[in-house]
Write a protein that binds this DNA or RNA. Structure first.
Length: 497
RNA sequence: GGGCGAGUAGCUCAGUGGAUUAGAGCAUUUGGCUACGAACCAAAAGGUCAGGGGUUCAAAUCCCUUCUCGCUCACCA
């Protein structure tokens, strides 16, 4: 009894707090979170889904905790593929390079595929492509202009997807950004005695990585043809993020198949003295998205699924579900309401299905499961929230006007719910440390379950005072906790559904 | 062959400072709307935690080993 009084007091205290009693950190850091890095001229696909969802989620959590978060997309906007594309456009579709409005990204990616084909087949075209790269690097005006048009076009298309997914604004800092720093990055490695030449390529030999014969393995930072590669840009980025951005923590939500790559560049960054004990560079690796067959998700023809298609499919399925549900309940809702609900629920379901799984393991992508109204899914949580709002509508209650009334906890379901509400702060601490958002999902799912049990057992609007107000506060706090928790996952709520 | 990761209920998964009879959800069976939205709740059933060793008063968890699966191993990103 004493204990339940104390818990009731704690709830009364957080009731007037927008942050629900969660104090910001006393040690704010500057943190960089990597966002998906699509290649310019190619459409975003399923391979970008997890890093978008996880990156956004981690960013929001860290920001809420009080850190200064910089979201950066390391887009592929430089190098041979670019030369290829520009060479091809100059030859086959020159007008595209003067008027950007004529092209959309779909067409551009078609051109890209054609360019790739020609590149593989035609030697003279290879030379033209390399020439275009050279022109790009030397700043040839016409080539740069073409490059900008292509980048802008791609960028616009990405923003549409980001908007649909509800991602925050992102700084696009592509590979081209680091171009001016590549040479000096290598010079620095050279000065430190880390650079060696092997088979014509410049490399840093790695500690702890060997090939079949037991020889130590190199990280190639300048190819034998003189070109730079992925590792070079990433090293330049590490250096820049430490020195210029003053980042204390850098998080890369990238698939676990790139585990070696990150271990390697972090090692080199450390040996170069860029990464010190004051810096925390983390590869927040994640597993594959598998199809129903348990194999890596892709289209029937074996290609990567376009992100837009995947999201649209989720939304379309919700729309159908809603239509049949409303028909069955003889509810009439506006088209606008249905469209909006379908979009929020569809996107939420995709995100939640991803985040509710342990980040490091593979997971099976199933529309049926993620859109299920029961179980640990977005719709279940959204429904719990909607139930509370339903109370407000039914009883004409303005939760903000409840004041700081006492919360009295007599029933076991009330006490269980109350205790659970107070645990969010602790969960967030764990997630800040381990970067595993599924713990928030589990927390919110259990919160919703406990709310539903409470709702089932305890009348609210028909209760006598002071229980009535107390229960209203409990319901309101539940809803606000769900709303806050979901917003940290990058998910919006609905007032009705 | 080397490195990394995984193997927990029929299915999808939690469980990552070792501690009472291993937890959810889905599916299955059963019960609950003349109560605030039943898109809910309650109950039942279901597991030699891949196999084998070891450390410990105590192991799904730590160590060793075997098997199975996935990812990856110098000029792609």
């Amino acid at each position: 009894m004493l204990k339940s009084n104390y818990i009731g007091q704690l709830l009364s205290q957080i009731q007037s707090d927008e942050r629900l009693g969660i104090a910001p950190t006393k040690n704010p850091q500057r943190i960089i979170v990597d966002y998906p890095s699509p290649n310019v001229a190619k459409e975003m696909h399923v391979g970008h889904l997890r890093s978008a969802i996880i990156g956004e989620c981690l960013s929001r959590i860290l920001e809420f905790i009080g850190h200064d978060v910089l979201r950066i997309s390391h887009i592929g906007d430089w190098g041979t593929p670019f030369g290829m594309l520009i060479a091809y456009l100059k030859e086959a579709y020159p007008e595209a390079l003067t008027a950007s409005k004529n092209l959309n990204l779909g067409e551009l990616s078609t051109f890209y595929r054609q360019a790739k084909k020609r590149f593989d087949e035609d030697e003279s075209f290879q030379n033209a492509s390399r020439q275009a790269v050279v022109e790009l690097q030397t700043g040839d005006e016409e080539t740069i202009k073409a490059w900008k048009i292509v980048c802008e076009l791609s960028s616009r298309s990405y923003r549409q997807i980001y908007d649909l997914m509800g991602l925050s604004s992102i700084v696009e800092r592509g590979e081209s950004f680091y171009n001016p720093f590549l040479a000096e990055t290598l010079q620095e490695l050279d000065r430190l005695g880390l650079l060696e030449t092997s088979e014509g390529a410049m490399c840093v030999f790695l500690e702890g990585f060997t090939n079949r014969d037991g020889d130590s393995l190199p990280l190639i930072v300048k190819k034998s043809d003189g070109g730079y590669n992925y590792a070079t840009t990433d090293l330049a980025a590490i250096r820049y993020r430490v020195r210029e951005d003053k980042a204390q923590r850098v998080i890369y939500p990238v698939g676990s198949e790139q585990n070696n790559h990150f271990t390697q560049i972090f090692q080199v960054g450390r040996r170069a003295g860029w990464i010190t004990d004051e810096h925390d560079f983390v590869h927040a690796e994640f597993g594959l998205i598998l199809g129903e067959d348990g194999k890596k998700l892709k289209t029937r023809s074996g290609e990567a699924i376009r992100l837009k298609d995947l999201l649209d499919e989720a939304i379309a399925r919700v729309r159908t579900d809603l239509a049949t549900r409303f028909a069955a309940e003889e509810r009439t809702e506006s088209q606008e309401f249905i469209d909006n609900s379908a979009q929020v629920i569809g996107i939420s379901a995709v995100k939640y299905a991803d985040l509710s799984q342990n980040r490091t393991s593979d997971y099976r992508f199933s529309y049926d499961k993620m859109l299920d109204l029961k179980g640990n899914t977005a719709p279940y949580l959204l429904y719990a929230y909607v139930r509370v709002q339903g109370i407000s509508r039914k009883g004409s209650i303005d939760f903000q006007q409840l004041g700081n009334a006492n919360v009295v906890l007599a029933e076991t379901t009330e006490l269980a719910l109350a205790k659970h509400i107070l645990q969010l702060a602790e969960i967030l601490q764990d997630v800040e440390r381990d970067l595993l958002p599924n713990r928030i999902c589990l927390y919110l799912f259990e919160l919703s379950q406990k709310f539903n049990q409470f709702y089932d057992q305890c009348p609210i609007l028909q209760a006598d005072e002071p229980q009535r107000t107390s229960r209203l506060i409990l319901a309101d706090l539940t809803a606000r906790t769900i709303k806050l928790g979901l917003s940290l996952l990058g998910i919006n709520v609905l007032e009705r559904m």
